[in-house]
Write a protein that binds this DNA or RNA. Structure first.
Length: 178
RNA sequence: AAGGCAGGUUGUCCUGUCGCUUUCCGCGCAAGCGGAAGGAGGAAAGUCCGGGCAACGCAGAGCAGCAUACUUCCUAACGGGAAGCCGGUUUGCCGCAAGGCAGGCCGCGAGACAGUGCCACAGAAAACAACCGCCGAUGUGCCGUUCGCGGUGCAGGCAAGGGUGAAAACGUGAGGUAAGAGCUCACGACUGCUGCAGGUGACUGCCGCAGGGGGUAAACCUUAUGCGUUGAAAGGCCAAAUAUACCGGGGCUUGAGGGCGGCUCGCCCGAUCCCGGAGGGUAGGCCGUUAGAGCUGUUGCGCAAGUAACAGUCCAGACAAAUGACAGGAGUCCCGGUUUUCCGGGAAACAGAACCCGGCUUACAGACCUGCCUUUUCU
RNA sequence: GGCCCCGUAGUUCAAUGGAUAGAACGGAAGUUUCCUAAACUUUAAAUAUAGGUUCGAUUCCUAUCGGGGCUA
C-alpha cells in the first residue's frame, strides 16, 4: 500500500538524536541523506534502563480515566510513535537558511513525502528480506524548488543509491565478522 | 470609452485516482480495517497596541519608571474607530493690498507669562539689538555771520531703509515729526480679559477694555490621566526516572535567603536551609484547547463608528507539528493564427493556523462596485 | 510561541542635531624596478528603506526591511 502513516514517520526526539549522532550519511543532490540501521534488540535499552525499577502503581487508582491519560500505565511500553510496525522511519528537513518562507518549506516537504510514499515499496521489501530496520532523514540542501516530476526522479535515484550502500555495508560487515 | 488616484467586496470551480488528519459508529487482543461527516487566511504575517485567561501570598504605602495628550462619542479595552473643532498646505473665486470665503489633501494637535538648556555658519546683534544709515529739534565745543541764523563735531535721539540669516519684534495706506516709530487714524491679522448669544464640548460670532521682545517640549521638563510582573515553554493532573555522590562559600532567632519582579518602608515565611561548581535522571500522556465581546440575516435607534431585539447556525484543532500529488474538464486573462465561431500555447497573486479575541501596519495577480480627476468622441 | 539588541566605504570601527560624514586595512591608477615586494603620490567607494519633527537629521520620533541573540 502506498500509505505514509505516523508510524512510518520519525517523530520522536530520542530516535532523532540517535540518528543524527550515530547515523551514516551521503549526498545525492538535492538531498543529504542520513540513515541508521537498527534491530529491535537494541531499541529497548534506549528508552528504559535495565536496572530501573518498574513502578507497579496503586491498584486503587486504576480507572478508565487513568488508563486513558497514560497508555503506558502500569507497565513500561514503547511510545506508539517509536514502535517499528513498518521497517522504516523517515523524516524530511528543509533548512530555514535556504527557504525563508514557511510556504516554500511546507511545499518541499510535501513533495518529498509524496514522492517517497509512491516509491518506497521496493525499499521496504529489500529491508524486510534482510530483516533490517532503518531510521532515515532527507535534508533538502537545494536552493530552489523542483517540480514534482523531477523530485520523484531524484527520490528514486536516492533510494536506489541507499539500497546499494546498505548492501555494501552488510557485505563488508559479514566479511569483517569472518 | 480609456487612463490614474482613493475606498470597499471578492480572492477560481467541478469530476476521478492515490494519500494525510480529527470526530462519531461498527469490527479487532493489538497493529489496523470499513463507513459517515469535517479540515488554512484576509491578511493565518509583522508582533506595534488593547483585552480575556493563568500563576506569582491571603493586607499595604511612597518614590522611580513607562505610556498617552484638541473635543464629544463608540467600545470589554485600546496608542483603534466615527463625527466634529482648530491649524497647515494646495486649487478656484473676491479684494489695490494686507487678507477673506469655498473645495481637496495632510496633521504624535496639552503647556514656551514655572524653571533650565540649545539656536552652527553668516550677521552689529539670536534675546533687554544698533554695523551701514537717518536726524542732530534739545544741550554744548569750534568756525562763519548780514546777529535772523548757517556749517561741522560731540552728548544724544530713531529703528523707516540697506545688508545677514530658517528666524531680526504686527501688515497695507495715510497723517505726524528734527528724523522717526501703533505715536495717531482707517482697514485687516493676532494675544489676553470682561460681558452677551450659540453649542454637551473643543470652539465660534458680536460689543468693550488692555497689549505689542522669537523659535524649539518627536530637548530636559510641567500638568492631567492610566499602568503590578510574567506569558500557554503560563498553569493543573497522571505516569516514568533518579544522587541531598562530591568540592567551595554563607547562615541557623544577634536571621542567610525568599515572598509582587527597579528602589525604600511596612507585613509575612524561614533552617533536612541558601548560593556557586561538577555530576545524575526525565523530557510519554491528559486537561488548559477551541461555543466565542462567535458568525449570518431581518427590523428598530443613531449623521456615523456602532448598538438593541428577534430568528437561524456550529465553522480546523495539528503537537519535531495534518490540510497534499497527479490526470481531465469549465470559466477568466494574455499571445499567435483566424479575425463571427474556432485552433494552439501560456498565466493565475500575497502567502500556511500553533491558547483565543478586538484593532493597527505591511504584502497582494485578477475580477466587480462606488466616488473624484484628466483626455478623446457624440448629443 | 514569547522577549531583547543592532544596521555607517569591500571589511573593522569613529563622528554634542551644524558646513564637503573620518581613520585603518583592502581595491584601482601612477612613480620607482629588468620584474615583483616594500615605499611614496593620487583616486573611487557608505549613513538599510520610507515618512515626519526641526532652519538643518548618521543622530530625535514612527512604520517597514534585514541581521543577530536569549528563553524548556
Amino acid at each position: 500500500m502506498q500509505t505514509f502513516r505516523k508510524s512510518e514517520r520519525l517523530c520522536t526526539f530520542r530516535l532523532k538524536e540517535l540518528l543524527f549522532s550515530q547515523g551514516q550519511g551521503f549526498f545525492s543532490y538535492p538531498f543529504r541523506v542520513v540513515y541508521y540501521l537498527i534491530n529491535e534488540d537494541n531499541l529497548e535499552p534506549l528508552f528504559f534502563k535495565d536496572d530501573s525499577v518498574v513502578y507497579e502503581g496503586n491498584p486503587d487508582q486504576q480507572s478508565d480515566l487513568l488508563a486513558h491519560q497514560n497508555p503506558s500505565w502500569p507497565h513500561r511500553r514503547l511510545p506508539p510513535t517509536a514502535s517499528f510496525y513498518q521497517p522504516v522511519k523517515m523524516m524530511v528537513s528543509v533548512p530555514r537558511r535556504n527557504f525563508k518562507k514557511a510556504t516554500d518549506r511546507n511545499r518541499i516537504k510535501r513533495l518529498v513525502k509524496e514522492s517517497y510514499r509512491k516509491n518506497k515499496s521496493d525499499f521496504y521489501t529489500f529491508l524486510k528480506s534482510r530483516d533490517l530496520r532503518c531510521l532515515l532523514a532527507f535534508v533538502y540542501t537545494g536552493r530552489e524548488i523542483l517540480p514534482y516530476s523531477e523530485t520523484e526522479n531524484k527520490i528514486k535515484l536516492t533510494l536506489q543509491k541507499l539500497r546499494d550502500e546498505i548492501a555494501a555495508r552488510q557485505h563488508t560487515g559479514i566479511k569483517a565478522g569472518e
